[in-house]
């Protein structure tokens, strides 16, 4: 167990260092950081001073060490475009993204599981056929079109829900939430649905195919031969075996919701981290780009660790050693 966790943590560290390296290379060598920070018409003396202060004249390894050190202290540099420190910028926009992502995750997970199980157990029923057809349309619709469609219907035509922004937010000091006001909640509905829909179809299809695969296994046939009821077979045996691979892939899919939020946030002008990043890409705002990269990597590494731990708990083949062999 200890070895398993240590191995995973070590692998995560390697991933983080690799991402940090890429992020450092982007930060250091893409464009000229000094010109980026001071603007094109800065004096040569100012540039030289800044260059010195940033340590750009030191050896590369020392610069990387300094970069990692700064990162660990939460110092990601100053945005070229907004001329503000990056960390507070990201932190101020984080609550918006996280609230959106959490709600979407819930919708996608619950909807995906229920519909996946349904379509696997009754593959020939009209309901399953309809769901499967709709899901195919679902994966063919780009997220931004779903967003535009929902806005058109619920905001422009029906005037039920707002089409952009977070509505009224309550500032809790360290967190701004839209969950406590009715306009905040209303504003959350459309973006959360948009973001959830694509993941929902993916999870649904995954659950379905895994479950169909499990239902074909010998132990299910043998469970039938033992006379167990269909309910026990489907919801005790088949479901548990389905969940083992589903946990892994679903975990990773859910992590990607935060990244997919980029598109949703742009469509709904949602003031989150994703829209900050898109603007950074458009304006080549390198410090924000590299900080965002590190942020996403951290999210994924953490999710990965949780998923591995869950996997380890669910699958006895990983933790229960073998007994001594006997005929």
């Amino acid at each position: 167990m200890l070895f398993f966790i240590l191995k995973r943590v070590a692998q995560s560290l390697i991933v983080m260092i690799a991402v940090a390296l890429i992020s450092f290379i982007v930060f250091r060598y893409v464009g000229d950081p000094v010109a980026g920070m001071l603007g094109q018409d800065a004096s040569i003396e100012d540039s030289a001073a800044l260059r010195d202060r940033l340590g750009l004249n030191e050896p590369v390894l020392a610069q990387f060490a300094r970069f990692v050190g700064n990162t660990l202290h939460g110092n990601f540099g100053i945005s070229y475009r907004l001329q503000e420190p990056v960390l507070p910028l990201i932190l101020s926009r984080l609550p918006a993204t996280l609230e959106l992502a959490m709600l979407s995750v819930t919708i996608a997970l619950v909807g995906g599981l229920v519909m996946g199980i349904l379509t696997a157990l009754r593959p020939r029923s009209p309901v399953s056929m309809t769901i499967m057809t709709l899901s195919l349309i679902g994966v063919s619709l780009p997220t931004f079109l779903i967003g535009i469609g929902l806005i058109q219907l619920f905001a422009v035509k029906l005037h039920w829900l707002p089409s952009f922004g977070r509505g009224e937010v309550v500032d809790l000091g360290w967190w701004t939430t839209g969950l406590l006001t009715s306009s905040g909640l209303k504003s959350l509905v459309l973006p959360a649905l948009t973001l959830a829909l694509f993941q929902l179809t993916l999870i649904m299809r995954l659950v379905r195919s895994e479950m169909l695969e499990v239902l074909r296994q010998d132990y299910i046939r043998f469970a039938r031969a033992r006379g167990l009821s269909e309910r026990t077979i489907n919801f005790r045996h088949a479901l548990k075996n389905t969940l083992v691979p589903v946990i892994t892939i679903t975990g990773l899919q859910l992590g990607s919701i935060i990244a997919f939020a980029i598109i949703t946030e742009t469509v709904f002008q949602w003031p989150g981290v994703g829209s900050l990043f898109v603007q950074a890409v458009q304006f080549v705002d390198v410090p924000i780009m590299s900080a965002y990269m590190l942020f996403i990597a951290l999210v994924f590494v953490v999710i990965n660790l949780i998923v591995d731990a869950l996997y380890y708990l669910v699958d006895p083949r990983l933790h229960a050693g073998s007994l001594k062999n006997a005929g």
Binding site: V26, V30, S256, A259, I263, V278, A280, V284, M293
Partner: peptide
């Protein structure tokens, strides 16, 4: 584990 769109954005940005 990283969504394709994010990678495309990063590659494109760089």
């Amino acid at each position: 584990s990283f969504p394709a769109i994010l990678i495309a954005l990063l590659v494109f940005g760089v």
